[in-house]
Write a protein that binds this DNA or RNA. Structure first.
Lengths: 260, 260
DNA sequence: CGACATATTGCATTATTGTGCGGTTTTGTG
DNA sequence: CACAAAACCGCACAATAATGCAATATGTCG
């Protein structure tokens, strides 16, 4: 991104660290020498930055630089096998809400993968997704017709995001939007951890008549940085949470809350 | 944009170990010599890695390599993509032909999935594909940048074909086209079983500077209905076939034939 | 305005890590 | 039991990291 030649403006350590962290999350790894060259500071300063990022437990250091804490692929596979029972219950409940012949625009997450797997084999649906894993699961369904939305893939979400993916969604109009990775903040807004992802979800919601959200119990009340939409855009929320006061507030916003 | 460093990246021990662990979990077993070759480090370094993985009690060593601690029943799907010994050999041979920084337009087939898996982890490449499985394999690679080409998915090929997919290819210009499911007829033409697929392959070849074909031995001399292109458009053919007379004819058409 | 506390940086020095190589030992196999 | 492959060990070398220190901002308060 910032290919531009930065002026000899000296940045403060915290600013540098923020940029470095972003770089690490985007590229997976960075080296101390490269960073020193880029910021035009000594490697020592970079190392001090990296040390602080390690102290903050947001990156992993190796000899020569730093990297993400976990390999995304590893992380995803582990996430998939984690808490499968709960995801299956949510997925099944949501699958039951899909009528014959519906068109679905499907997010990327391990929970929605379970949703796809729980679709009745006799139900014929049309699935649009930019997620590699959702597409794979959809292909296993005997009747589903799957359409892939192209774009550059993020190693973290394993789906296409960014301008090209949003552009692909823009031309669509479908019955249901199925979101999985959203957090629902205490102020009753849908939120996402990643900016690109938040934009993409917004576009998905806009392209759909109804929006379904699949939320593991830990997603409710969770704070995430980037706003997607107010909860009122959601038609149905599927969860296993027992937090009845929170769920009641959601209901009062006009959302049909289903506890699986 | 890419900083344009032509030297393969050297990974740190922790990164290698993460990848090795992933490989072991995916493939069931790995050998030290293979890993040394892939990472372009000495076998000693690999052994040190394996020792640490053993110390962490996540893998099991045997003479020559390492394996999973317990062998869980491989689910059907994973076994499919695990591939045969023959596919791995072809895949590795083809992977060795890819230079640092190359852009690849990749077909769909179990053989090319192996090709992707055999790309050295230190090689940074850009992969364009409409295949769900190729994209998934590409995401497991630590450095590869994967771009999904959208379109309606065929349950048979597990990749996008048809007008939209061809349209997505039309705008591209890449270094290599990697084809896997082609048959090579006796009259030395590339052929495909599916009409849509044949059109798509044609478009892929047109968008690429060089065309590589990965052909299992049973694909040579096989008859298929739809013509894709004369064999002369192919730069390199990778196969395990021993049919020397046939291969000689192919060579005479200007194709570099590599027997893996 | 000036003095002082604080933060940040770069440099020199010392410690640590990662790597490959030669030599030796162990393992698997006929 | 012989033989080859693989593993281990110790070593030297290079790259990188930690540490202490001095110089230079930066900001605050009397």
């Amino acid at each position: 991104m910032s290919t531009g030649k930065e002026e000899p403006t000296t940045l403060s350590p915290v600013e540098r660290q923020a940029i470095i962290l972003e770089k690490i999350n985007a590229a997976g790894r960075v080296t101390a020498v490269d960073l020193a060259q880029e910021f035009k500071v000594s490697e020592d300063s970079i190392r001090r930055d990296l040390r602080e990022l390690v102290d903050a437990r947001v990156v992993q250091r190796f000899h020569g630089g730093a990297a993400r804490l976990v390999t995304p692929a590893l992380d995803f596979h582990r996430r998939e096998t984690l808490g499968t029972e709960e995801k299956q219950r949510i997925g099944r409940a949501a699958a039951a809400a899909i009528p014959e012949g519906a068109t679905l625009l499907v997010d990327t997450s391990t929970t929605v993968v379970q949703f796809i797997r729980q679709l009745p084999p006799t139900l014929s649906v049309r699935i649009f997704t930019s997620s590699v894993d959702v597409a794979g699961a959809g292909l296993d369904h005997p009747l589903a017709e799957v359409t892939l939305l192209g774009g550059r893939l993020s190693k973290f979400t394993r789906s296409a995001t960014g301008a090209s993916a949003i552009d692909a969604v823009r031309g669509l109009k479908v019955d249901f939007c199925v979101l999985g990775t959203c957090g629902v903040d205490d102020d009753l807004t849908l939120r996402a951890d990643d900016l690109e992802d938040a934009f993409f979800k917004k576009a998905m919601i806009k392209a759909s008549n109804k929006t379904l959200v699949l939320a593991l119990s830990d997603k409710l009340g969770q704070v995430a940085t980037h706003e997607v939409a107010p909860i009122s855009v959601v038609s149905q929320l599927f969860t296993t949470s027992q937090n009845s006061s929170f769920l009641q507030r959601v209901r009062e916003m006009g959302v049909d809350v289903q506890t699986a």
